[in-house]
Write a protein that binds this DNA or RNA. Structure first.
Length: 582
RNA sequence: GCCACCAUAGUUCAAUGGUAGAACAAUGGUAUCGUAAACCGUAGAUAUCGGUUCAAAUCCGAUUGGUGGCUCCA
């Protein structure tokens, strides 16, 4: 904690320095706020003349220059009137000062060098001594609305990164470079996994054959994990009448994010969620308490009209395929059912090597109970059931107050990828709202109609986002079970083509995804192509192999197996695939 | 949507306001090769629309698309 606070103070001091440098260069600029963020800081400005990122080095230079004169931060408490007078020309600071007065907080000014700013404190003592000039860097420019509200004026935000030492800064920048190299849009293009078309539109990626192998392998695996645990697959159409979403409440919740489809007579919506559809399937039958739980699974595409600026690649899209599922159960079944879902999540994420770096948010109600619908008694039952299931399954979980949805408590799973970035993926949510809205019921042991609890659950979250994440997690080097091409056969010359084709057929007939590259290129070139495609295994066939009727295979990490028969190779590959070896 | 930046061949990149070049890929041929790019040919482009200019890939405006950001609160 100690070092974090020190780093935060350092970053915050740099934000002041940034503002001071900007004022030196463009004195008419209005300064606003400059907080600390992960890995650095930013400061929002109202520039009178637009600046571009070409100005950043100039500002950075000025910062280094000013830093020499910043020997300490001094603090002065001001009265409301004094503060207002000092910042009379700055509407933003004036608004902040008014806010402080309303909250009855102290008003303090901090000064370093000849720059004074309204600030609640949190600086280092001697900037010129403690700030390492090689450990910070102005990073990028961005637009940002004053106080994050799009009704307000757009300010110019300057981001900086700052760490304690030059080495740490370089390490951080290198990690960011690595992330850029792994960008799923770049790798997806190089490996021919997906594409986007201007004519079709942004946020609507097209999955190419090789990408579809990965996607289908994932969704087949997901279904395998569900089918023996009492789930049934269902299918629901992509549009529905407006009325459905009025009843479900999604029309109000999603608002202008809903795509509208005008039919000849009725107005339809593209579905933004599958839940209401699944509710209607359940409502079609009268179930007994003995039938419960009823479990539906559907990998289904939903559509949301996201703002165009928020789209890109596979992770921010308008057509989202959720591995969605809903189950309808009695209150006394929540705990056991959540346990089943947890076991699915555990198996799924173990297979992609992410189960060793995760945490779970047990999201429960906050103190303001008016924000939540449903009876307190039911909430208590559900929160306890989730807690018990998390504990019984040894989850690394944390109770987070106030993070529950308005309709029920939930377990949100956060996983870290191989670069240490956190992704919110799986989720298990209790819902008291939809059963109420759709008036769902089952017959209990007393012959009375009883309201079921709905549990929403998604394992991968969405197939698009999950695939994008997975591409970056593996940097395109997928494990064998996920690789679009699992093995490539390279005959050295035409003399081995008959033997090569024979091996090719045997592998193909054993459901191995194999490619035979006997194109008119040098062996070196064909090896290079296979490696660039990150193919897990390569077989080179020359006279040696042909004459001895064996194979030499090579894996990605310089693994080399010689003198193996085709039968033994197939056994080895099938074992590796079925075990989903990492 | 808004702010900043960006848009040249299928891809990755060149080109002071003055003849749009290259590599890879594609394609036609030659070489039949033992571990990350054989050799010789061919074809292919300034996103769209408008303006400035003797002259525009280059300058200006609009449109379309992309990248980063718009959640972090003195």
């Amino acid at each position: 904690m100690e070092t974090n606070e020190k780093l935060d103070n350092l970053r915050h001091s740099l934000a002041h320095l940034l503002a001071a440098a900007v004022l030196k260069l463009w004195p008419e600029t209005l300064v606003t706020i400059g907080p600390v963020i992960e890995n650095g800081f930013y400061y929002d400005f109202d520039f009178k003349h637009p600046i571009s990122d070409k100005d950043l080095p100039k500002i950075e230079k000025k910062m280094r220059e000013l830093l020499k004169t910043w020997k300490e931060f001094t603090v002065e408490e001001k009265t409301f009137e004094e503060a207002k007078k000092y910042f009379a020309d700055n509407v933003y600071k004036t608004e902040l000062i008014d806010g402080l007065k309303d909250k009855n907080e102290k008003i303090t000014f901090y000064t370093a060098g000849d720059f004074t700013d309204l600030c609640r404190g949190g600086h280092i003592k001697n900037p010129s001594k403690e700030i390492n000039t090689d450990a910070f860097k102005l990073d990028r420019l961005a637009g940002a609305y004053w106080r994050g509200d799009e009704k307000n004026k757009m300010l110019t935000r300057i981001y900086g990164v700052a760490l304690e030492t030059k080495e740490e800064l370089e390490k951080y920048l290198a990690l960011r470079e690595e992330a850029k190299k792994r960008d799923h849009k770049k790798i997806g293009h190089e490996l021919g996994l997906f594409t986007v078309s201007d004519l079709i539109g942004s946020g609507l990626p097209l999955i190419k054959p090789k990408g579809m192998i990965i996607r289908k392998t994932i969704s087949d695996f997901l279904w395998d994990l569900h089918k023996n645990r009492g789930y049934s697959q269902v299918w629901t159409p992509h549009i529905a009448k407006e009325k459905l979403y009025e009843v479900s409440g999604h029309a109000a919740k999603f608002g202008d994010e809903l795509f509208k489809v005008q039919g000849k007579e009725d107005k339809f919506f593209m579905k933004p969620m599958n839940c209401p559809h699944h509710m209607q399937i359940f409502a079609d039958d009268q179930y007994s308490y003995r039938d419960m739980p009823i479990r539906y699974f559907e990998p289904a595409t939903v559509y949301r009209d996201e703002k165009s600026g928020q789209l890109g690649g596979l992770t921010r899209v308008r057509a989202i395929t959720q591995d969605d599922g809903h189950l309808f159960c009695r209150k006394d079944q929540i705990e056991e059912e959540v346990g089943v879902i947890v076991s699915i999540i555990r198996e799924f994420y173990t297979s992609v090597g992410m189960m060793n770096n995760y945490w779970v948010s047990l999201s429960v109600r906050g103190t303001d109970l008016s924000k939540y619908i449903g009876e307190t008694k039911n909430w208590e039952i559900a929160e306890e059931a989730l807690n018990n299931a998390a504990k019984a399954n040894n989850l690394n979980y944390k109770r987070v107050e106030g993070e529950a949805a308005f309709y029920g408590p939930k377990l949100d799973f956060m996983f870290k990828d191989s670069l240490g970035r956190e992704w919110q993926l799986a989720t298990i949510q209790c819902d008291f709202n939809l059963p109420e809205r759709f008036d769902l019921s089952f017959m209990n042991e007393n012959g009375e109609k009883e309201r079921p609890v709905v549990i929403h659950r998604a394992i991968s979250g969405s197939l698009e986002r999950f695939m994008g994440m997975l591409i970056e997690h593996y940097a395109g080097s997928f494990p064998l079970w996920l690789s679009p091409v699992q093995i490539t056969i390279l005959p050295i010359s035409e003399k081995q083509s008959i033997y090569a084709e024979q091996v090719y057929s045997e592998l193909k007939n054993s459901n191995i995804r194999v490619e035979l590259d006997s194109s008119n290129e040098s062996l070196g070139k064909r090896i290079r192509n296979a490696k660039m495609q990150k193919t897990p295994y390569i077989i080179v066939i020359g006279d040696k192999e042909k004459d001895s009727n064996t194979l030499t295979i090579e894996g990605r990490n310089n693994v080399k197996i010689e003198n193996i028969s085709t039968e033994d190779l197939i056994i080895k590959l099938q074992k590796e695939i079925s075990e989903k070896a990492l």
